[in-house]
């Protein structure tokens, strides 16, 4: 078995040091080593987006990343979106607009939406849909999710 490598990174604002094997996937590292199980595994082929997290502000698929690549990076997972344990405005909009049903894809969509709203304060519907193309949802038909992101952008950035 290969030696482990020491990595230092920041996750949800907290410094983390860990020893990981080079072949440790970021999604497995988050879920199994750090118990951050909000990040989901849905396809392991980089299609469904349930494992999406932010790395230095950019949304990426943690099932297509190695934990070792994250040395020196700042990560946000779904657990890091809440404000003092309460849902953020974006999370609230997902709750109120039918942006979630079974909830399994929700963390991934929240991360993709966070990335989008950080870059584009008032995206139009076409931009929203295009920026969700790396995430799959089987429950909502995407309508509630699009509505939620529109609602959040309005609440966060005004009309």
């Amino acid at each position: 078995m290969m030696a482990k490598n020491r990595i230092s990174l920041e996750i949800n604002g907290e410094a983390v040091e860990a020893d990981v094997r080079p072949n440790r996937l970021l999604s497995d590292f988050l879920r199994d080593d750090l118990a951050l199980t909000g990040t989901k595994r849905g396809c392991e082929t980089g299609v469904c987006g349930a494992c999406s997290v932010l790395v230095d502000g950019d949304v990426v698929k943690s099932c297509l990343s190695l934990a070792i690549q994250m040395n020196g990076c700042s990560l946000t997972t779904v657990e890091g979106l809440a404000c003092d344990g309460a849902p953020s405005p974006l999370q609230k909009s997902f709750m109120e607009c039918g942006g979630l049903q079974c909830g399994y894809c929700t963390p991934g969509f929240l991360m993709a939406a966070s990335d989008l709203l950080a870059r584009t304060s008032r995206p139009d519907v076409a931009t929203i849909r295009k920026n969700l193309s790396g995430n799959l949802c089987r429950c909502t038909g995407y309508q509630g999710i699009v509505d939620a992101i529109l609602d959040a952008s309005e609440k966060m950035h005004g009309t």
């Binding site: 949304v59 989008l116 920026n131």
Partner: peptide
């Protein structure tokens, strides 16, 4: 190309 996540990686 591909999707937003992959474009970031």
């Amino acid at each position: 190309l591909a999707n937003p996540q992959v474009r970031n990686q």
